[in-house]
Amino acid sequence: MSESLFGEDVIVRTIARLVAPFIQLFGLYVLMHGHVSPGGGFQAGVIIASSFILLALALGLPESKERFKKTIRLPMESSGPLIFALIGVTCILAGGYYLQYGIAFLFPPAVVSAILISAVEIGIGITVLAMIVTIFYAMAGD
């Protein structure tokens, strides 16, 4: 898929360019509200990834790749679980069990819990985002 599915259709290209940041914004919303409302890291990652897929479909693969280079994707893929695991270890260092969020560590337990859960969700989101985009690029002819 060397070029856009839609040829040089101006409307599609423009709309896609306009919509993509909003999709990403929505993804971030889902990400940050994961611990209080439906949603979370995984869904957010998929939503943000879909914005890149949209760009690829509308603008063509090369341009989409230009915005999300392999050199960025590769560290992102493995940093997500790393964040997850390290936060678990942080809980141990702070005197709790692995992944025990509700511990008093500089802040009251409720605050720490919110911060740590959000961090874990961010980690998951990053990985899912990078993985899905990578799979998409691989299938589209990387």
Binding site: L74, P75, S78, L82, L86, G88, G95, Y98
Partner: peptide, 28 residues
């Protein structure tokens, strides 16, 4: 809780953490 009581998770974490670090370092 002593550090020894965390050993069950540590034995799992060591290989998994290495698995995530390896591609990044290997890339370098």
């Amino acid at each position: 809780m002593t550090w020894a009581s965390h050993l069950p998770i540590i034995v799992v974490l060591i290989p998994l953490l290495t698995a995530y670090i390896t591609p990044m370092l290997g890339w370098m």
